[in-house]
Simulated assay, not measured.
Amino acid sequence: MTSARLLVVLDADSTLIRNEVIELLAEEAGRRDEVQAATEAAMRGEVDFATSLRSRVSALAGVPVSAFPRVLSRIEPTPGVRELIDAVHARGGIVGVVSGGFHEILDEVAPALGVDLWRANRLEVVDGALSGRVDGAIVDADAKAAALQEWAGDHGVAARATIAIGDGANDLRMMAVAGLGLAFNAKPAVRAAAALVVGPQDLSEVIPLLP
């Protein structure tokens, strides 16, 4: 693999994009309010992420895959995200996204924004509709930290030249292993633990921090 000067890894929901994808999918099932409350509790670190995700995904059972284009049409990239990604590339760096969300949406959104690497959960589909189960291992806090370290190793990026940007409790381990952990649009526990707090809503504010 090609080497890079730096690596910036972002969370997806409420960081790379302004939306929480699972809430948009839950709206298709008429269950947005309950899923939104559960998502906020998970992001505050009040419940185990994997357990919470399985519970929230169960609320999506029966949503047809034909709903994905409608959800995609509602995705809003976070202001400044394209400028940040362009700035990382201009400095010889790469951009990764690791998400507790879903490949089914990220596989469209990430390349459109110029993201180089991405990893997320997958939703099980049976007979053209969501089964209410996650397909495969869950991308949780440990998996996010491991992805950052794996990508840095693959591309010869020193730990000190890595930046992690996130908003929720499941981003804290990734932020801890990075050279610089940034809280963006973040919950109080994440702001308290981060090296720096950026935002509230413009990722181009990260550009002056790039090595």
Rank of each mutant, 00 (worst) to 15 (best):
7 L>R: 04
9 V>F: 09
9 V>Q: 08
10 L>R: 08
11 D>P: 08
12 A>C: 15
12 A>R: 06
13 D>P: 10
16 L>F: 08
16 L>M: 07
17 I>E: 07
19 N>C: 07
20 E>H: 10
20 E>P: 07
22 I>M: 06
23 E>V: 11
24 L>P: 09
26 A>S: 12
27 E>G: 15
27 E>R: 12
27 E>I: 00
28 E>R: 11
28 E>F: 02
29 A>W: 08
31 R>I: 05
33 D>C: 02
33 D>L: 12
35 V>G: 08
37 A>I: 05
37 A>G: 06
37 A>E: 15
41 A>M: 12
43 M>D: 10
44 R>D: 10
45 G>V: 13
50 A>F: 00
52 S>Q: 07
53 L>M: 11
57 V>S: 10
58 S>N: 04
62 G>L: 07
63 V>D: 06
63 V>C: 03
65 V>R: 15
65 V>E: 15
70 R>T: 14
70 R>A: 15
70 R>Q: 14
74 R>C: 12
74 R>K: 15
75 I>S: 12
76 E>Q: 15
77 P>C: 12
79 P>W: 11
80 G>E: 12
80 G>P: 13
83 E>G: 12
83 E>P: 13
83 E>H: 13
84 L>V: 11
86 D>G: 14
87 A>R: 14
87 A>Q: 14
87 A>S: 15
88 V>H: 09
89 H>D: 08
92 G>K: 11
92 G>P: 09
94 I>V: 15
96 G>Y: 11
99 S>F: 07
100 G>Q: 05
106 L>M: 08
106 L>V: 04
107 D>N: 07
109 V>S: 05
109 V>Q: 06
110 A>F: 05
112 A>D: 10
112 A>Q: 13
113 L>D: 06
114 G>D: 05
117 L>R: 14
117 L>P: 00
119 R>H: 13
120 A>S: 09
121 N>Q: 08
122 R>G: 03
122 R>M: 06
123 L>W: 06
123 L>N: 03
129 A>Y: 12
130 L>E: 08
130 L>W: 12
133 R>S: 12
134 V>G: 04
137 A>I: 03
142 D>H: 13
142 D>T: 13
142 D>L: 10
147 A>K: 04
149 Q>M: 13
154 D>V: 01
155 H>Q: 00
156 G>N: 05
159 A>K: 11
159 A>Q: 14
159 A>N: 03
161 A>W: 08
161 A>Y: 09
162 T>P: 01
163 I>R: 02
164 A>M: 02
166 G>Q: 03
166 G>Y: 04
170 N>V: 04
173 R>P: 01
173 R>N: 01
176 A>I: 00
181 G>D: 03
182 L>F: 02
182 L>G: 01
184 F>E: 01
185 N>D: 07
185 N>L: 00
185 N>C: 01
187 K>G: 00
190 V>G: 04
191 R>I: 01
193 A>E: 02
193 A>G: 02
194 A>D: 00
197 V>T: 14
197 V>K: 02
199 G>V: 05
200 P>V: 09
200 P>Y: 03
202 D>H: 13
204 S>W: 02
204 S>C: 01
205 E>K: 10
207 I>E: 04
209 L>Q: 03
210 L>A: 09
